[in-house]
Design a binder for these strands. Structure first.
Length: 786
DNA sequence: AGCTGTGGCAGGGAGG
DNA sequence: CCTCCCTGCCAC
């Protein structure tokens, strides 16, 4: 077994960590014969017990940096020394015997500074590990959901007001047991005590909830505070420890309050859903109800209650509210069942507990494996290098318009394949852990995938799938880690080498396709859309073509057929629409449709695309006139023309920046400010434009969507008509100017006649010769020629 | 206290 | 009008 992947096999998993004395821990492993005790010396961790101070130094001071010239920037991590002094002596001895003389007292240690947080965190986390050896199935998971009664409309922020209260705590677990705490029979303090009692009695390993970090837990804690109740739900009798945290899913950042419950793990399904959509990017919302529907987990008789109506239902119709709360926990369980498997299986090989793994990013996971190996080898760990990555994926568009038929090919795992193929790993990784990890994880994933395909048991298949997909996410992050500014082992030059090799590879593929008579339409990073040559338009010939393409590429790089489409609307780079043979339409990119658009616009554009791909110009014209009149006659609902924006920053920060002149005013923030409600980053604001000016300044003419009154519609008709025309403009390149005017016109003087209107296909302009030339010489030519 | 990357496009606002 | 800058959204 490769120590790098220690713990992947079930019989190597830690089942319990028991503290022996102040400085060591005893580890128990599970194997086929049951639980056995293992000599801790093999285990490559430093166990510091639960004392925060050893030799008078906080635990984090055990990781130090020497500032001597020869080893500036390196940290040494220690694992088996009994005292700080031994550790320092070892390190100094290793690098510089002279320096030892300087260290005579604690005062001399001032030149040692805490350097590497990741290392410190790593050690501290492992020291706290309480993960019991369990299968995903045997984990005792408890779902929690609360409903609150508020005098005002915004319950959460009012959690401190005595007149608001928790009315319902719904719990459910995978032992088929359900419990509902009914506020009518208890005071709130009684209810909170009862919650504590039940959790301790049921003793769950995991507590799950949707948005549990930002709502349920903090709310409960606040109410406990108010009523002086101690929420002692830790396995050691402690109360939850909370701290503010932030994760960013790509450019979106998400703030939440992490709660740590001793001996238990908290899983927030909201975070799981966001993490899932980070790669898929096709969900409209991350709310529980939508997510449950998205994954097909909704029961047919599910009860729905609007958030604002909860107080009313509690007063008038409590039974349906209770049913609603139980449906919430039921969906949370199913959601977690679906999504938490990836984190669970990764926990087996990462030096972090389940709850932590579930909220960690990919880079931190990779780094933890690297650091563990360096600790095992007692090798120094590099510091992050400063710099930036300069290149990314190759993106290009060759032709715009409606085209077809279309074939999409892509390189499987482009960046990982390149890294393995060209042996690209960080220069600072002297022990070669990075490449070994990448290789081993890739092999492991392929094996797991094969095992999945072999398996005939549905449950087992699901388990294997969860494992292989969690590995896939991890493997794909190795490239990102190279260019990650805070990565201890980052290497920007190597990150650039990966992307440049990718670009060269794509150019090679493009020229191959063109040489065979294909018409390349669009390229993005690892995939190519093209119109196959006439002779090739059958699936069998396509596969032959793919084989030839694969043979033209280096060993270890494989190309796959990703999709076949009837037609494609090629609009701009990263922006296109596809019509499948099953008549479904996929729209990609933010410039055709995006979440930031008014809903009527989104629907309008989607329908336009449908008409265009199906060459239905009469419908297109009718569509335009229909929407035109709906706007004119105030027939749209506020939901259709309101714009919904997500607040990224606290309102106070926005105000400060506007005051300082470093930021422009923005309608969404102005509406939020004037509403006087407590907004947090991540909250959504819906607003619409008022007035008569077709070109208004948004932040001067905006109103909150819930102020709109159907009986006195005051939306700016001129503005929304202008928006309609802006949306139509997107299709201008498809028509001659006259044809465009004829189609997108509400002028009914002459009936619309589509005769003679042809959709245009335009070759994209050759702007940058260097990037546009697929045959441009590259430093990777030798590699490509094999 | 925690955080994987680059590239392309749209729209608002400010200022020329 | 236009250009520039910034933010937001999205593809990979």
């Amino acid at each position: 077994m490769n120590p790098l992947l220690y713990g992947y096999n079930a019989d190597e998993r830690i089942v319990a960590v028991q503290q022996k004395d102040d400085s060591t821990m005893r580890i128990y492993f599970r194997d086929s014969g049951g639980v056995r005790h293992e000599d801790e010396s093999f285990f490559p961790f430093l166990f510091l017990g639960d004392r925060h101070y050893i030799d008078g130094f906080p635990r984090k001071h055990w990781i130090k940096k020497l500032e001597g010239d020869a080893f500036l920037g390196y940290v040494c991590a220690f694992e088996e020394w009994s005292s700080m002094w031994d550790a320092v002596r070892f390190m100094v001895d290793l690098y510089n015997r002279d320096a030892l003389k300087k260290i005579e007292s604690y005062a001399d240690l001032e030149f040692l500074r805490v350097y590497s947080d990741p290392v410190a965190q790593y050690l501290m986390q492992t020291g706290r590990t309480l993960f019991k050896g369990m299968t995903f199935e045997s984990l005792h998971r408890l779902q929690l959901d609360i409903e609150t009664y508020t005098a005002g409309r915004y319950g959460f922020s009012n959690a401190g007001r005595p007149q608001d209260r928790i009315i319902l705590i719904a719990l459910s677990d995978n032992k088929g047991w359900q419990h509902l705490i009914d506020g009518r029979k208890m005071t709130e303090p009684q209810m909170l005590n009862e919650l504590t009692r039940i959790i301790n009695e049921k003793d769950p390993d995991v507590i799950e909830g949707h948005n549990i970090f930002n709502f349920d837990i903090p709310y409960i804690l606040k109410r406990c505070d108010l009523h002086n109740v101690s929420l002692a739900i830790g396995r050691d009798g402690s109360t939850p420890r909370t701290f503010d945290s932030r994760t960013s899913f790509a450019e979106r950042s998400f703030e939440y309050t992490v709660a740590d419950i001793a001996g238990r793990h908290i899983i927030d399904t909201l975070l799981l859903v966001q993490g899932y959509d980070m790669t898929k990017r096709e969900m409209e919302s991350y709310g529980l109800k939508y997510a449950a529907r998205y994954f097909g987990l909704t029961s047919p008789d599910r009860t729905y209650i609007q958030g604002s109506k909860i107080s009313w239902h509690w007063d008038n119709d409590p039974e349906s509210l209770m049913a609603y709360a139980l449906d919430d926990v039921d969906e949370t369980r199913k959601l977690s069942e679906q999504l938490s498997g990836t984190s669970f299986y990764l926990t087996q090989m990462l030096p972090f507990n389940y709850g932590h793994v579930a909220r960690m990013g990919s880079a931190a996971k990779i780094e933890s494996l690297m650091v563990r190996e360096y600790l095992r080898l007692k090798h120094s760990i590099p510091k992050p290098t400063k710099g930036t990555q300069t290149t990314g994926g190759y993106t290009d568009i060759f032709v715009t318009g409606i085209l077809g038929p279309i074939v999409h090919v892509d390189v499987e795992s482009l960046y990982p394949s390149i890294m393995i193929n060209l042996k690209i790993s960080p220069a600072t990784d002297e022990c070669g852990a990075f490449m070994t990890l990448l290789r081993e994880l890739t092999t492991l994933r392929l094996d797991t995938k094969k095992a999945m395909q072999r398996s005939s048991n549905a449950d087992e298949k699901t388990r294997f799938d969860a494992r292989q997909s969690s590995l896939k996410i991890l493997i794909n992050s190795f490239y990102g880690y190279l260019g990650y500014g805070r990565g201890l082992f980052n290497d920007y030059a190597k990150a650039d080498a990966v992307t440049k090799a990718g670009q060269a590879l794509l150019r090679k593929m493009i020229s191959h396709i063109q040489a065979e008579g294909g018409k390349v339409v669009e390229v993005d990073t690892d995939g190519i859309f093209f119109v196959p040559p006439e002779a090739m338009q059958s699936e069998e010939v396509e596969h032959k073509f793919l084989e030839r393409l694969s043979r033209a590429l280096p060993e270890g790089i494989s190309v796959a057929l990703d999709g076949r489409y009837k037609k494609m609307l090629s609009y701009k780079m990263k922006n296109y629409a596809l019509l499948g043979y099953d008549r479904t339409i996929k729209v990609k990119g933010s410039s055709l449709t995006s979440r930031s658009m008014e809903r009527f616009g989104r629907n309008y554009i989607l329908q336009c695309i449908d008409c265009l791909l199906n060459n239905n110009l009469v419908s297109l014209h009718n569509l335009y006139t229909g929407v035109y009149h709906s706007i004119m006659e105030h027939k749209l609902d506020v939901k259709d023309f309101a714009r919904v924006e997500t607040l990224k920053e606290p309102l106070s920060e926005y105000s400060r920046q506007v005051e300082a002149g470093t930021r422009n005013r923005s309608a969404a923030y102005e509406v939020a400010l004037s509403a006087g409600k407590p907004f947090r980053p991540g909250n959504k604001v819906a607003y619409y434009i008022t007035g008569n000016d077709a070109n208004p300044r948004g932040f001067d003419n905006c109103k909150s969507a819930d102020e709109w009154d159907q009986n006195f519609p005051d939306e700016n008709t001129a503005f929304y008509l202008r928006r309609l025309d802006e949306f139509s403009e997107k299709f201008k390149p498809l028509f001659t100017p006259q044809d465009f005017r004829a189609v997108f016109s509400a002028d009914d003087l002459f009936p619309f006649d589509p005769t003679g209107i042809a959709l245009l296909i335009i070759d994209a302009e050759q702007t940058e010769t260097e990037t546009k030339n697929p045959n441009a010489p590259s430093e990777f030519d030798i590699w490509l020629e094999g």
